[in-house]
Amino acid sequence: MNDGLITVLLVDDQPLLRMGFRLILEGEDDLVVVGEASDGVQALAAVESLDPDVVLMDVRMPLMDGIDATAKISASSSGARVIILTTFDLDEYAFAGLQAGASAFLLKDVAPAELIQAVRLVASGDAVVAPRVTQRLLENFVRNSPPRPALQPDPLLEELTPRELEVAQHIAQGLSNAEIAHALFLSEATVKTHVRRILTKLHVRDRVQVVVYAYETGLVTPSNPDY
């Protein structure tokens, strides 16, 4: 973010949708749309040249879809954070987008105020965008997926202290810092410190990626009555 401005790149193959998002975002003093792209290939070029803070990324596009583009952005040196745009909140593409490194997903018919809030939160690095919806998406996808072989414990989990492991499990539930602090009888400042250390140790960008990681590694499962 430069001078308090959050820069946004719009990626969608529908010009009218891009226009609608532009009108919503540029009505805010702290948000500016720096570019548009109609497919994943253009999106990658735009991210490299414009270095946006946030990318609003459609999934189904020609040449390169939003999932592949998100994965390439996440693997690059760019600091851009991706919000996946999807039609259904339990869409398998939304799950794939989160796996690819997206910080959040939104429905295309999102209310203007929710879109604005999501962009600001993701730009801040917090990425707490409907974490319980994210959790519900992951639980639904895992339940409806073919049975997976028993997972080997991820070596990265061994880097976490017992308290950090507890905090990670609560993050996977979709709890906020305040809710985690209340549940574990900690101060919010202490929780924030734990969250920063968890992100560093697990090599993930934000809280949403902690949720994805927790389900992928079996740290939490839908069959667990506690989660």
Rank of each mutant, 00 (worst) to 15 (best):
V47H: 02
R136G: 00
H170L: 11
Y213H: 15
A71V: 07
V133E: 12
E164G: 03
L157H: 06
V142H: 06
R197T: 10
E92W: 09
Q173N: 11
L160A: 08
L25E: 10
P155R: 08
A94I: 03
E159T: 15
S176E: 07
M57Y: 12
P147K: 06
A150W: 02
L175K: 14
S124I: 01
G4F: 06
V208W: 03
V204R: 04
Y213S: 10
P153F: 02
T217C: 11
A127P: 07
G40H: 10
I24P: 03
K108A: 10
S187C: 04
A118V: 02
N2W: 01
K192N: 13
A130W: 08
I67F: 07
S76P: 12
A214H: 08
T70S: 09
K192Y: 01
G125M: 09
V220W: 09
F141K: 14
T193V: 09
I73R: 01
D29F: 00
I171S: 05
L56W: 06
I198K: 10
R18H: 04
P222I: 12
T190H: 14
V110A: 14
P153M: 05
G174N: 13
D58A: 07
D30P: 07
R143A: 06
V195A: 01
A80N: 00
I83E: 10
P162K: 14
H170I: 01
R120Y: 11
T87E: 14
V59E: 03
R136W: 01
F95M: 06
T7K: 10
E114I: 07
V210F: 09
N224P: 05
Y213N: 06
T87C: 10
L151A: 15
G66E: 01
A118R: 08
A111Y: 06
V59M: 03
A96H: 12
S187V: 00
Q152H: 05
A189G: 02
R143P: 00
L23K: 01
G20I: 00
G125F: 03
D3F: 03
R136I: 00
I67D: 03
L138R: 02
V128T: 12
D13Y: 04
Y93L: 08
L23T: 03
G101M: 09
I171Q: 11
V208P: 05
P225M: 13
R81P: 10
S176G: 05
D3M: 08
S223W: 12
V33W: 02
L106H: 12
M57E: 06
A43K: 08
V110K: 04
A96W: 05
K192D: 08
A69Q: 12
A127F: 01
L90Y: 11
S76H: 11
F21S: 08
K192L: 09
V82F: 11
L56S: 07
V119D: 10
Y227T: 13
G20K: 01
H170G: 01
P62C: 08
R136Q: 03
G20F: 00
S223T: 15
E188P: 01
A118K: 04
A113G: 04
I73W: 02
T134E: 08
A69E: 12
L202K: 13
